[in-house]
Nucleic acid binder design. Structure first.
Lengths: 237, 237
DNA sequence: TTGACACAGATTGTTAACAATGCAGAACTT
DNA sequence: AAGTTCTGCATTGTTAACAATCTGTGTCAA
């Protein structure tokens, strides 16, 4: 388990149930246990979490405001399904923001930060050896959030976490069957570049990594399992 | 009036009333018409916008998820009141993100983008000549959103707008009576640096500008009009 | 005068019933 | 058989009443 539970979405509102629902769905998306287009019916969520409908609706509204859930009027809530254009936007934004993050870290990263990052990569390697796919996916994304957290800046961390989560959806939608979840040793390289103290090489490392992830996607072609396909098939066969 | 009404918060949910409430409060905060700590009672908002309580509560929840409103359990909603630490975090985040934005723009900015930016600065000068304080404040913040919009990236724009809006709250809280809203010609300098095509000087320009704004604040001392002060005064005099 | 306590009013939080909408399947027509 | 319309069910959206909490005021005792 990751320890991102401490700051969460740092909404200061004290609402145990509601925060729990949001976090659970958030985590499920991060771990790709909830596929895009999955319907999130209010009744099902009420029973799952044992709360009233109001809490569920509030949680869904919050998730929709972060682009994780798509609220369709009178039709219900679905796990968001980013378009290829949105996907490109997310990657451009991540490049811009995360290069800044690592450049600054290269200039001044605390010792505890480096230790946390190395420990994180260690966990990734363990998960990879165990072929724990869910854990691998979850930790791969969480690494980038950890980079942001090194700045001890909740605003920055929140932004990155939102983008990373949306990236999970994007990978789920556009990821090719090839090892799209294979940062392998790239995360370690990023850490090395940071500790080397050279902003430029740190920037290069993260840029290379993000472009690598993006290039493992198939943003040009059709998305996976688009809804029309079913109708087309049933209509033609 | 600014033309930021077109993409808004780009929530795809089609809810005219609700979006209107959120935008109105959002704009009011941007223009510093709504001071921090202002109570936003549900009844008052219902009457103001002529909608039911549900819509108001949903709008407040959305605003709170963006750090604009502080929802206190059983006590109501208040315009957020960022702490000095939060303020510093916002500025660090802005520095990191906006330097990336202008660096990229320096490498490749469209002609229409430059025109839009120059037109914006023009409007700022007009507002300054007219001593239209509200408009000046609003446009000063909007300029940074315009910079982000040059990338035609709704994700990036949304992030920047959120940070800019929170900055309005911060300036309202920590701004000294000195001309804290005086970018003067700094915005123009940023554009010049961008069109010059040199990423480094563009970065320098925006960094200088943001630090200038931050330095015009008083983040060390006490905040303006803290609530205890009233009680202290009434208790002692 | 000061402090504690209790009460009334106002405001927020929650629930449940109701209305509206969409969806799927049946029946009907061609 | 294909398409269309209609109807019933399931789900979502809205409203209003109720419950819980807080705030301010007034009273009382020290």
């Amino acid at each position: 388990m990751t320890n991102q539970a401490e700051d969460k979405l740092d909404t200061l509102r004290t609402d145990p149930d509601e925060q729990m629902i949001v976090d659970r769905i958030y985590s499920a998306v991060m771990e790709q246990k909830l596929a895009p287009r999955t319907k999130l019916s209010e009744l099902a969520l009420c029973e799952t979490f044992g709360v009233g409908r109001m809490r569920v609706r509030r949680a869904l509204l919050l998730l929709s405001s972060q682009g994780i859930v798509d609220l369709q009027s009178n039709r219900g809530a679905y796990v968001a399904c980013p378009s290829a254009d949105e996907a490109r936007e997310v990657f451009v934004a991540r490049l811009m923001i995360e290069t800044g993050i690592v450049r600054e870290l290269a200039r001044d990263v605390g010792e505890t930060g480096v230790q946390t990052l190395r420990a994180h990569v260690e966990k990734e390697e363990v998960a990879r050896q165990n072929d724990d796919r869910t854990e691998i996916i979850s930790l791969s994304g969480a690494f980038h959030v950890e980079l942001a957290r090194c700045h001890e800046n909740s605003v920055l961390t929140r932004v990155v976490r939102e983008l990373v989560t949306r990236t999970s959806l994007i990978v789920a939608l556009f990821g090719t069957n090839q090892a799209s979840t294979c940062p392998d040793d790239e995360h370690a390289s990023i850490i090395d570049a940071i500790v080397s103290g050279d902003p430029q090489s740190a920037e290069d490392a993260i840029r290379h990594h993000l472009l690598h992830v993006q290039n493992s996607l198939d943003l040009e072609q059709t998305q996976k399992a688009e809804p029309d396909l079913v109708k087309i098939l049933t209509g033609r066969m």
